[in-house]
Design a protein around this nucleic acid. Structure first.
Length: 539
RNA sequence: GUGCCCGUGGCUCAACGGAUAGAGCACGAGAUUCCGGAUCUUGAGAUUGGAGGUUCGAGUCCUCUCGGGCACGCCA
């Protein structure tokens, strides 16, 4: 593709001129006066020159441009203000790359550069002591899309969920249920909401002679099913559900290993993870309680050992921000076990604040003091739910406005994007798209040089940037940029649609525009597929 | 008290350390004999919470400070 050609030529010139090689960033110019593509290469290189060799960015940029000389695909390359190099390409060479998009179709954006590698993504992992709440739900689409992106780049990905089906919270839930059953609910029974009544109703026949813990176990099993169903409603399916009760069976073993690694100490009758680490020295954590029981943390160490032993890299955990203290301890533990903590990538996300207009919604009948994912999902639908939660960087504290997502749904960006797809599909449905696609692929007859309108060129540039974006997302996991990309694509398409009649155009121009529509549809559909949002042909 | 995250137009949010800080919503003015107006064009609206610093260049990095969220040993 054209962009790769520019990069290759730049690389060659940098090497010829004796500058150090490194990654070159070539981005789409924001402003037409800056050409089609631009690079800050000279500014980066200037940083590396020293002493008597010290050169200004502008000097370097000029050398590079001179050395590049005339290239067949370039109208010109010029040095701008601070030392940026701007490339003005020939539209026909740019447009010609559309053949690639049509050829690759559903695979456009995919790559096999990570073929043979494994990755694991753990997400949601909601505590099964209650329904899935909207806060945890944010990690659903997030983890799912990260997994989609990794898969697209060749990784064999495992989507996983840990079911915390044992521990103090299970006893507490059991106690609450029994108290409710006997009509003596007290302050110390921490769980509330109608779902407790539902659990009582379902379980009352069985729990009369059971302990709090046994009662809690039954309840937690039911809640886990519900959480799985909710996840499914969000479009998520897990490959692996790990039950904490299973992990705890290996707790004694893992503690032995940690002891051998010299990171365990005894204090107040309990065992603590106590790595010899400046940062962690005041943050020791209990791995075996004084009563002999284990903690969630112990189970999580077992779990992560399994993850590392599976050979996966990266190992991705999506945690709510309230777990941030857990991260350095976990890293310390896996490091003590001899694994490379660099393979563990933790994405922390902030909780979502639900609003109805200007009013913050906190309470829910079903769940007591939080809003369930299901309530929001039922109200706004899967597509809007996923798209909205995926729009913003995970570390931002975002607001989820039910008014915006439901009552003003036509103004929601997800509909804007889906409408663009429906428009594309509509045009293509009026001609026999398959014929066109086939002919364009097989005979390469379509003459994309016909496309030289600004709105056409802008759209083409955006389409061609897709594979690079996906590759980058597999590394930085910033999948919210995918929604941004989709909105921009829809925007550029709508503008093209206004300016350039497709079906009324004549001969070669009509063919070229139809192919551009098809390339746009392919790219948008692929983007939406990564997002797990439907791409409707009609709305 | 300590640690982590956030602070960007009226609102919700973008922006690998890069050029004139971008979108959408809301608000003002326009566009439809024509592929779906769920669209497009255009206007107004921002000392990026504040103060210093680092450098060719800071919304982004460092220090301090203000405001909000979260977490701080036998919970998960």
């Amino acid at each position: 593709m054209l962009k790769q050609k520019i990069l290759e030529d730049l690389k060659r010139v940098v090497s010829d001129l004796g500058y150090p090689s490194g990654d070159i960033v070539l981005s789409i110019s924001k402003n037409p006066t800056f050409g089609d593509y631009s690079t800050n290469l000279a500014l980066q290189l200037a940083k590396l020159t020293q002493g008597s060799n010290k050169q200004t960015p502008k000097e370097i940029a000029k050398k590079i441009v001179n050395k590049l000389g005339g290239l067949s695909y370039l109208e010109k390359a010029e040095v701008a203000g601070g030392g940026f190099i701007n490339f003005f390409v020939k539209p026909e060479d740019l447009a010609n790359d559309l053949h690639e998009v049509l050829k690759e179709g559903e695979d456009f954006g995919k790559s096999d550069i990570n073929k043979g590698k494994k990755a694991r993504v753990e997400f949601i992992s909601a505590n099964p002591t209650g329904p899935l709440h909207i806060g945890n739900a944010r990690s659903g689409p997030l983890g799912d899309v990260i997994a989609n992106i990794l898969t697209s780049q060749g990784y064999e990905v495992l989507r996983e969920f840990i079911d915390n089906n044992v521990g103090e919270q299970v006893k507490a839930l059991g106690a609450t249920i029994k108290a409710k059953l006997h009509g003596n609910l007290a302050e110390e029974n921490q769980y509330q909401g109608e779902y407790i009544d539902e659990l009582v109703k379902h379980l009352e026949a069985d729990i009369e002679n059971l302990s709090d813990e046994e009662t809690g176990s039954l309840a937690v099993e039911m809640m886990h099913e519900e959480i799985m169903a909710d996840s499914h409603a969000m479009g998520i399916k897990f490959d692996l559900v790990v039950h904490e009760s299973e992990l705890r069976k290996e707790a004694a073993e893992i503690i032995d290993e940690l002891k051998k690694a010299g990171v365990v100490k005894e204090k107040d009758g309990a065992l603590w993870l106590a790595p010899n680490d400046e940062f962690l020295k005041d943050r020791e954590t209990v791995i075996q309680k004084s009563d002999g029981g284990y903690t969630y943390f112990t189970a999580d160490i077992v779990y992560h050992k399994q993850k590392f032993q599976s050979g996966a890299d990266p190992i991705i955990d999506i945690f709510g921000s309230n777990h941030h203290g857990h991260v350095p301890r976990l890293q310390a533990a896996v490091s003590a076990l001899g694994f490379d903590p660099g393979k563990l990538k933790v994405v922390l996300y902030q909780y979502v604040r639900v609003k109805r207009g200007n009013i913050v919604v906190k309470m829910s009948k079903r769940a007591g003091n939080f809003i369930t994912a299901r309530e929001v999902l039922d109200e706004v639908g899967k597509d809007a739910f996923r798209f909205y939660l995926l729009r913003f960087a995970p570390q931002t504290h975002m607001d989820f406005d039910l008014e915006l997502l439901k009552e003003e749904s036509s103004k929601n960006p997800v509909f804007y994007v889906q409408y663009a797809h429906a428009r594309m599909a509509n045009i293509l449905n009026k001609v026999q798209v398959n014929k066109i696609q086939e002919s364009s692929v097989k005979s390469q007859e379509v003459d994309f040089a016909q496309l030289n309108n600004t709105s056409e060129i802008n759209l083409i540039k955006h389409l061609l940037a897709f594979p690079d974006l996906v590759t980058e997302l597999a590394l930085n996991l910033a999948v919210h940029q995918l929604t941004e990309y989709a909105i921009n694509l829809a925007d550029l398409f709508h503008k093209f649609y206004e300016n350039c009649p497709v079906l009324q155009a004549q001969n070669d121009l009509r063919e070229a525009r139809l192919s551009l529509v098809e390339a746009s549809r392919i790219t948008l559909a692929n983007t939406l597929k990564f997002l797990g949002v439907s791409a409707p042909e009609r709305m």
